[in-house]
């Protein structure tokens, strides 16, 4: 590898991972309240699949099962996948996604601590490219009929017209791209009763839940405050700047911060210790880069939310970021970094 250790291992991986899971609970609670308990089914499905896949691959690789299974990292990946996939997606979609994450993105690259890409985000990208339609069918806010959601997940015959609703991000992009409608951001978000005026009804509360959990993680010392701050500040600044130029065509910072996966990305995805940058300055660049790319993909791209693609793109840059932000080696008189650059 290029430089300093990729993983800064705290005393116990499992303690950290379970705190991360606990921090997701407020967001999940809001999710259940606004979009029904279907998400709990997806989380259960994802967790079982992740543990089974992890155990199977560990057995094949001849690694001790108990030690690695108990660390909880597979569970975190599984929960993130469940939370980023539509909660009414058919069961096999999430199972396949988790398999991609655990088998391909994690273990083919060497297992925990070795994977250059965030496994949950790899799963999202693979599945949205493979099944764009299924991955764009989100439940409408306020739809909490568990039986209908159960049928959507496990039923062979999926009648979704009553359930499916465009997410605020999708609706915004769709309408703004039609020149003849002369739509404005305010018109789309404000006139439509199904969207709240911050991040979309329901979604903004889920985002608040993630925010609360994330702040608790910072307070517990599990994640550093720099990554989420850099992420949210960048996303806020860039969306704010464009909204100042033309508020009719570009949604403002409050919308961007409280919709889609922004909060999840800031506190739970960009903070991944394995696939993120290791240096302090590097982490800030990494998080800011994800936020910038997310905004670009959301505004001009072809796929719904941009967090996953942005994360993978920045994952690729991590070795470079780390190399460029390394502190000079202690004791060197020239003050040159190992790669010969003047600091």
């Amino acid at each position: 590898m290029l430089n300093s250790p990729y993983i800064t291992k705290p005393a116990s991986v499992s303690a950290v991972m379970f705190k991360v899971l606990a921090a997701l609970l407020p967001g999940i609670a809001a999710y259940v309240w606004f979009f029904g308990a279907g998400i709990l089914l997806q989380i259960a499905l994802a967790s079982i699949t992740a543990l089974a896949a992890e155990a199977a691959v560990l057995a094949m690789r001849g690694k001790p099962l108990g030690l690695f299974l108990k660390d909880g990292s597979a569970l975190v990946t599984a929960w993130l996948i469940a939370l980023t996939f539509p909660s009414i997606a058919p069961w096999w979609l999430i199972v396949l996604g988790v398999l991609v994450a655990i088998v391909v993105a994690k273990h083919l690259y060497g297992g925990l601590g070795q994977n250059p890409f965030n496994p949950a985000m790899v799963a999202f990208c693979v599945m949205i490219v493979a099944y764009p339609q299924l991955m764009s069918q989100w439940p409408a806010a306020g739809f909490t009929d568990f039986a209908a959601e159960f049928r959507a997940i496990f039923g062979a015959d999926r009648h979704l017209d009553a359930i499916v609703m465009a997410t605020p991000l999708d609706a915004l992009r769709t309408v703004l791209r039609l020149p003849e409608t002369r739509a404005t951001v305010e018109g789309v978000l404000g006139s439509n009763a199904t969207f709240g005026n911050i991040g979309g009804r329901g979604w903004e509360w889920v985002a608040l839940g993630y925010l609360a959990g994330g702040l608790w993680l910072i307070q517990q010392g599990v994640i550093s405050w720099r990554v989420p701050t850099a992420f949210l500040a960048t996303l806020g600044l860039i969306s704010g700047a464009f909204a100042l130029v033309d508020a009719t065509q570009y949604a403002g910072p409050t919308f961007h911060l409280f919709t889609g996966g922004a909060m999840l990305g800031a506190f739970f995805i960009a903070t991944d210790p394995v696939s993120g940058a290791t240096t302090v300055r590097g982490q800030i660049i990494f998080a800011a880069g994800i936020a910038l790319l997310t905004w670009i993909i959301r505004t001009f791209g072809a796929y719904p939310d941009g967090i996953a693609f942005a994360t993978l793109l920045m994952n690729i840059c991590v070795p470079l970021i780390d190399m460029r932000t390394q502190r000079p080696v202690f004791g060197r008189k020239t003050g040159k970094t190992p790669d010969g650059r003047q600091p």
């Binding site: 339609q133 299924l134 764009s136 069918q137 499916v164 465009a166 769709t174 039609l178 003849e180």
Partner: peptide, 14 residues
């Protein structure tokens, strides 16, 4: 138009 993919259909229709 197919659920989740209205844009292409709308463009062709209009």
């Amino acid at each position: 138009a197919r659920a989740g993919a209205t844009i292409s259909a709308r463009a062709v229709t209009n």
